[in-house]
């Protein structure tokens, strides 16, 4: 992820935090014209949610790739009888967690949910997601400006995305 920053790949946190934020924003605009400003904290990441591949969605969301971590605890069923409602919970022992995202590799759009964890909020989220078929569930945790992930395969008996 070094070199060849094309504007899209600019890490959002760098944009948000950097003293040179104005300069960076400027670069992004030059490179991409009317591209949406990724610096806007509460802007809905539309493009990331449209990606078919989980890697593409993660890159669009966070501007970097994740490394595997055993400091993320992913609670997911081995077998989900109903793919329309799969309970997934995540907690992490990483410090300075700022975001947690849930992806299902085999769903039509991989990204399911992305949560922002402000300072003072626990790095722990539970929610219910849809799974089209048996797939890896991927959880990405942003902590201390770095990106970590873990995954688990969940077998789905009845898919939750129709078709």
């Amino acid at each position: 992820m070094t070199g060849k920053n094309n504007g899209f790949a600019l890490p959002r946190r760098v944009i948000l935090q950097g003293v040179a934020s104005v300069a960076l924003l400027g670069l992004g605009k030059i490179a991409f014209g009317a591209a949406p400003a990724f610096a806007a904290n509460d802007k809905y990441p539309d493009e990331a949610f449209k990606q078919k591949s989980s890697d593409d969605a993660i890159k669009l969301l966070y501007g970097k790739t994740a490394e595997k971590s055993d400091k993320i605890k992913l609670d997911a069923p081995e077998i989900a009888e109903n793919g329309a409602v799969v309970p997934i919970a995540v907690s992490s022992t990483l410090s300075d967690v700022t975001a947690i995202a849930f992806l299902v590799a085999e769903n039509p759009n991989a990204l399911v949910a992305a949560y922002k964890i402000p300072a003072g909020t626990m790095p722990s989220v539970a929610n219910r997601i849809k799974m089209a078929r048996t797939s890896n569930v991927i959880v990405v945790v942003e902590a201390g400006g770095k990106l970590y992930s873990t995954s688990k395969e969940v077998k789905v008996t009845v898919g939750g995305c129709g078709g």
Partner: peptide, 12 residues
């Protein structure tokens, strides 16, 4: 803001 979610159509 103590918690913020961005959701796609994959949430139940």
């Amino acid at each position: 803001v103590v918690f913020a979610a961005d959701w796609g159509g994959g949430v139940s």
